[in-house]
């Protein structure tokens, strides 16, 4: 059957190549992997757009933005999918993105008014540990305990930057003290999320900086309920993932259509169990219990893009000197 579809596809492709428009979407690597949302999103969108959706993966969110900046106005990208609020100010300043006028009834813990960047999923950063391990309730309690943590580097990874902004948002001027107090809990700092999570699974640390939705993966895919995510009394910092169309999109209409599709029920119901994040719009069918919120909405912390951009450099300096001992 598959071969028949393939053969028909090839035959049709040769005739239709001239007519079928191509929509180029740049995204981060794990979105387009076989285990990410990419393949299902592609199939669902192609079923309604009479177009060919092509994902081009590039590292993580930050690498994605720098790739687009390297290409500049010559870029063939119609849509960039997978930036977050910490990168939005930089992204906007490039002038490479255009408003898409897409909106939806967002189920985010905060109001969303931006007309250029379309939120498609979100999550909370959280320390993830074992059910029978230490479970501190705040940064102060964590710092006072002898629990060992692995974190990501804010200079090379999005979760690392998220943690930096989290401590900054929760503690402001006291942030350097918190980092100093945490320094003896930190086993090590890794370049990215994969290394940190891998080391945590190996047992190198009690806790790892990840997402509140991480345990959901272990429950749903591995039937393993031994992992827990910790809500903190200060609140947990949010990551809102966004997509936007480029100002020079060769296919602006398709790009708008795709962004609208991204917040439609079809796409939103694909995302939770492939990208392991909360959907930006409440899907028609309820989410599995493993996705139940553990952070109350009034404990959601997030800096505005401008605030985050302004806080980043000084917070980084403080982080580096606090941990460099």
């Amino acid at each position: 059957m598959k071969h028949l579809v393939l053969a028909t596809g090839c035959l049709l492709a040769s005739q239709a190549a001239a007519q079928t428009p191509v929509l180029n979407v740049y995204t981060y690597d794990s979105f387009d992997s076989d285990w990410g949302p990419g393949p299902q999103i592609e199939q669902a969108f192609e079923a309604q757009c009479a177009c060919d959706l092509v994902f081009t993966p590039a590292g993580d969110g930050a690498a994605l933005l720098s790739k687009l900046r390297l290409e500049g106005a010559r870029s063939k990208a119609d849509v960039v999918l997978g930036l977050d609020t910490a990168l939005m100010a930089q992204a906007r300043a490039t002038g490479l993105f255009a408003p898409a006028q897409v909106s939806a009834d967002y189920a985010l813990p905060l109001a969303w008014t931006d007309d250029t960047f379309v939120p498609f999923d979100w999550g909370y950063f959280a320390f993830v540990g074992n059910a029978d391990g230490p479970k501190p309730h705040s940064f102060r309690e964590l710092a006072a305990s002898d629990a060992k943590i692995v974190i990501e580097d804010p200079r090379s990874s999005t979760p690392g930057l998220g943690l930096l902004l989290w401590v900054q948002k929760a503690y402001g001027d006291e942030a350097p003290e918190i980092w100093k107090a945490l320094s003896d809990n930190i086993v090590t700092v890794t370049p990215g999320w994969s290394e940190a999570y891998g080391m945590f699974l190996e047992g190198e640390a009690d806790l790892v900086l990840s997402y509140t939705t991480s345990p959901a993966y272990h429950v749903i895919a591995e039937d393993d309920d031994s992992k827990v995510a910790l809500p903190f009394e200060e609140g947990n910092y949010m990551q809102v993932e966004v997509a936007a169309m480029t100002a020079h999109a060769p296919q602006p209409d398709l790009a708008r259509q795709f962004l609208a599709f991204l917040v439609s029920d079809k796409a939103q119901s694909i995302l939770p169990e492939t990208n392991w994040m909360y959907p930006a719009v409440k899907p028609a069918t309820p989410l599995p219990a493993a996705f139940d919120q553990i952070v109350p909405a009034d404990k959601a912390l997030l800096m505005s893009p401008e605030e985050a951009e302004a806080a980043r450099a000084p917070a980084l300096d403080a982080w580096r000197s606090a941990l460099a001992r």
Binding site: D153, R155, I186, T188, V189, T190, P191, E195, W319, L323
Partner: peptide, 15 residues
Amino acid sequence: LILGGGPRATTVELA
């Protein structure tokens, strides 16, 4: 970075 245990072990390549 990983075995150096944090920002003390920042190399030029990381920068």
